[in-house]
Computed example of a mutant assay.
Amino acid sequence: MLVISIRGPPNSDFVLGYPGIDASWPRIVGIVEVRSNNGRPFKLRSLDLQLYRTETIYVQTGKLGISQTKRQESYPVGKKVELFKPGQIQSSSATFLSLELRFVYTLPFGENQLSSSICIPKVAESIYRLYATAVEDSGSKDDQRAYAPVTIVRYDTMSSFLEFQRAKTLQVESIDSIVVQRVTLQRTSFGPGDSIVMVVSILPNLDWKYKSKKVKVQSITLKVEEVIVFSLRGDDPASRSRTLLGEKIAVNGEKLGEDGYSVEITTSFPVSTSRGKDGVVITEENGYPNILTPAFTSSASLYSITYFIVVGSKLSNCKDIEMRIPITVTPFDSVICDAILEPLNESIKVASTADDRQPNPIFVTASDAMAVNKMGILVKPNGKRGIYIE
């Protein structure tokens, strides 16, 4: 029986580079260590490394939505890496006391980029596990496996990118065509606690000047809405919506002038502590990101998560107006996004000259006279053994 362990580099995360940014070469780096459980020499036929993704969704079913259906899928992502195979060392009959197999596991990129790890309790979850599978050369065909949780966080939705910092203006006409509601967002990506700044304008339709003069603005409402769509494999998709933020600005019946009515609205994106199914605050040790937002923009095989800012105007002598503006939600606030830019650029420079070959493994064979010392064991003068500490 083998003892297999997977660990990351000292004082570093498993994941190097920035998932979602292909130029930074997102990858998992670490060491697979193999020993026998009783300290005896062993022969190894093969050892493979494969990343798996597990998605889970909980869908409300029934007319009243009081029952819940759970669906789960687990599948490999990325290419399998052969860390050890026959003929890798000179003697195919070599027996080992231990192996340390350093590895570089390149994450999928381009259209196959991985979605982020996520945990919305009793709604949707995604986790990644890196499995090491070993087969002994002892006549048995049974695989022996070990895994390590891996946290994947994408960085391509950061608010510091130029595409999200451009102001966005949308407008919609009332059903009776008397007025137009125009909304200008200063930016379109938000993280926990980020300021949401927008200008809402109610403008008269010049083709209906007489009717538009009678219009009064009673109130402006603002909501941030989260929509999760579940893919049910053969059934019609199901969706779940919830309001994360709601505000109402009272205008008290102000009449619409020739220039219309405008108001600047500033609020903050919600902040919350991520908690798991048992209510305990999430840490990255279990493969989920520890973030300060309930969720973020994401798309996976079983679900997709999108966000909207919903702006409504309650009017007199005119039909009310409501419009939905799609936005991007990132796991990081604007301060963190700005701070990440410099190490991200440095990571891209490093990736452009990096060597993607697998590092050389470290073998400790049973025939090695220094095998005991290489395994960190000190043989005392009386023949007893102990752990060697420098």
Rank of each mutant, 00 (worst) to 15 (best):
V329Y: 01
V329P: 06
N373V: 04
G376F: 11
V335G: 05
A371G: 15
G17A: 06
P26H: 01
T157R: 04
P331K: 10
L185A: 04
V263T: 04
R45M: 08
V29N: 02
G253P: 13
V364A: 10
V372M: 10
D259K: 07
N205W: 02
I325N: 02
F230S: 02
E346T: 13
S299V: 05
E285T: 02
Q144A: 00
S67E: 11
S126F: 01
E225Y: 01
A238N: 04
N37S: 14
T353C: 12
S174I: 05
A134Q: 11
F42S: 09
P381D: 13
T330M: 10
P192H: 01
S117P: 09
Y261A: 02
E82H: 05
Q181C: 11
A295S: 15
D338H: 04
F308L: 03
L302Y: 00
D236Y: 00
E254Q: 15
Y105T: 03
D143L: 00
M1W: 11
V364Y: 02
S126I: 08
K213P: 08
M1V: 15
E163D: 14
E258D: 14
E111N: 03
S274K: 10
S301I: 14
A369S: 11
K168E: 12
N345V: 15
D278Q: 08
L170W: 06
Y388H: 12
V215C: 15
K209D: 04
L47P: 06
A134D: 12
I220L: 10
F42Q: 12
D194N: 03
D194P: 03
D176M: 05
R166W: 09
T69I: 00
K79H: 09
G87C: 02
T273C: 03
N360Q: 11
K314Q: 15
P19T: 03
T365Y: 05
I89M: 11
S304C: 08
Y210G: 08
Y155T: 08
K141F: 03
A369N: 12
R35T: 14
D333N: 15
Y155M: 09
K255R: 15
G65P: 02
Y105H: 03
I387S: 15
I389G: 11
G234C: 00
G110M: 08
S174W: 08
N38L: 13
I4E: 11
T365C: 10
G257N: 04
P359E: 12
Q72A: 03
S239H: 02
R40Q: 14
P359W: 02
